[in-house]
Design a protein around this nucleic acid. Structure first.
Lengths: 342, 342
DNA sequence: GAAACTTCCGAAAGGCCTTTCGGCACGCTA
DNA sequence: TAGCGTGCCGAAAGGCCTTTCGGAAGTTTC
């Protein structure tokens, strides 16, 4: 962890470069930034001097002039939430390409901390802010008075004049049922997580709608409790007890699906021959290690992060937001738990 | 996503505040920053003006003067790696308390991108850099010529003059065996992941050492292949085939442990009564949803992130690094897979 | 009543870069 | 040779804040 630069202890400034090349500050700046009004020979001399001093322009001063920092704040409510990470990756990726850097702030679900971070971000003059929540339930808006554009990702803002992007859970529920129907299942049940979650409600709406369109009813009631493997096991046990003839199960998450499959195996049911099971989230660690591998709905979270980034981009550039909640398409990933593979 | 601030379109500057309060720039600055040489009444007037204009000092200008930005770069090799996230959280947490903000950069395992990000961070004049790898194998150093302190987390630098913090995998392997011994197991086997990984090697060293100290031999060879549930299942099958009397299994990861437990159940072995199984990583989604819940070794990654942050802190403040690879203690988390619970 | 302080405020410099605009020098044309 | 471009370069301002230091006003002391 040596601190000394190539030459000395302090970073070289443009002044140093200019002096070394024997030109003025202005000329050095123009030479390095590819402006014209500089003779090729002079430019060359400056560039060489810059390299020799390993000069890098101080972005701070640059930003001060430009009135733009080329930074964006990523305000998450909770890094632990596994939905946050892919979104973050997508955003970081989209920005990385455009020379924008990302400030990461984790409020850990605390409003005070969120305000504190928000203030810090504004002090640092970020060009925009992406707020990432861990649930798809609406969250309080940061407010309208902010001097920079804000986009809400995953958890939409409760203020319709804000810009939000969130996965289309209704379409996801639909997609799951349609897939089961396409594999010939007709007796379909739905086991999902905490009924308080918008995600659970929305997916259920989709499931019901798709079944209704096919002229079918759900087998049994929607079973809602928690997003855990344990619940998946327990619920599957109850379901099979009451409706032994079920042939398709839409699980509200991959964890639940794993529990369901576990119980099915214990009860001597074959997956997918006797019962098809489809999960949700396409969490690969779970989906790929399941026996059989799990068909699942993927919310395209990374894409969602990228979209959020693009919207901030646009808002920064031409400032024409498109307010409201935008529902992004989800994707079906077919594996062995719904279709027999040889 | 309104852009207008409380008053106008542009953020208020100190100048505006000074004018509004009827004082000079200098006085306004002193009043706001709590310097003395300002009469209480004047200070009050300034503060009110600042509030009214919702003035926030421009950190850029501030940093320009101070020669310090109060920012740190977090350079990860791969955000997908689940070990990176807790480290990141720990670091963000430690910094958040100290008014430092974090630039997140994901190089996605690409050296070019890493260099690119490194350069961007230096341009932004970060005060320090934390490099987070996704494996515990040594990684190439960023080099010695950097103008800011660097700390390597999880993946240590291959240059011993750098500062690195990484979990003590040897101690982890040891701890696992010692725990099994303490529950009365004597016929212990070890199933772990990819032999190319330092993590697999180090943990194995610890396992062997602890057994040797107890005067015992490993049951069968160390079984190394991949970090997957599938491998856990397969390996357990082979192991039980050859050594049906095994009574304790150290798994190299929680995923492997889950596979092992799966197979044990299929073969009619009870966990933990007949065979105790201990995992590694304490990945709660897996460990808590297992039947029975999984005893595991926790690498204290969040703590590791905090430690890395503290070291950067120190390096920034007094610049006395403590070079070399620092191995941080790991922790045993006891659950039902090793100890019978009623 | 003058000298010596104490209080408080403001002008100005400084940090690092970009950009504008005036002007020097050279080469070309008439 | 005088005049006019054209091509390059540099002085200076500007962006926003902090800090130093000089000085004005008010207060105390003898």
């Amino acid at each position: 962890m040596a601190r000394s630069g190539t030459g000395g202890s302090k970073a070289a400034t443009l002044n140093d470069v200019a002096r070394m090349a024997g030109v003025s500050l202005a000329t050095a700046s123009k030479a390095i930034n590819g402006r014209d009004q500089v003779a090729p020979a002079t430019r060359q001399r400056v560039i060489e001097a810059a390299e020799q001093l390993s000069f890098t322009p101080n972005s701070l001063a640059r930003s001060l002039i430009a009135g733009r920092t080329g930074t964006v704040g990523l305000l998450t409510s909770d890094l632990e939430g596994r939905f946050v990470i892919p979104i973050l990756m997508g955003a970081e990726d989209a920005f990385g390409a455009g020379q924008i850097n990302v400030f990461l702030c984790d409020a850990r679900g605390d409003t005070i901390r969120e305000q504190h971070h928000l203030k810090a971000l504004l002090n640092r003059r970020v060009d925009g802010i992406i707020v990432v929540g861990r649930q798809t339930d609406p969250r309080p808006s940061l407010g309208q008075g902010l001097p920079v554009p804000v986009v809400y990702a995953y958890a939409p803002s409760d203020d319709p004049s804000d810009v939000s992007v969130t996965p289309d859970n209704v379409a996801g529920g639909r997609l799951a049922v349609e897939h089961l129907l396409s594999t010939g299942r007709r007796r379909i049940a739905h086991i999902t997580g905490d009924p308080e979650y918008a995600a659970a409600q929305d997916r259920t709406i989709g499931v019901r709608a798709a079944l209704a369109e096919a002229g079918l009813d759900l087998v049994g009631d929607v079973m809602m409790s928690s997003w855990s493997e344990h619940w998946g096991r327990a619920a599957a046990g109850m379901l099979l007890d009451q409706h032994p003839d079920v042939d398709g199960i839409v699980a509200g998450s991959d964890q639940i699906a794993r529990g369901v499959i576990d119980t099915l195996r214990d009860l001597g049911k074959r997956v997918p021959e006797d019962v098809a099971v489809i999960g949700y989230d396409n969490w690969e660690v779970l989906a790929l290690n399941s026996r059989p591998e799990l068909t699942s709905i993927d919310a395209n979270l990374q894409q969602l992060g990228r979209t959020a980034a693009m919207r901030i981009f646009d808002a920064i550039d031409d400032g024409e937001p498109d307010p409201g909640v935008h529902h992004l398409p989800v994707r079906l990933v077919i594996r062995g738990s719904t279709i027999e593979r040889r």
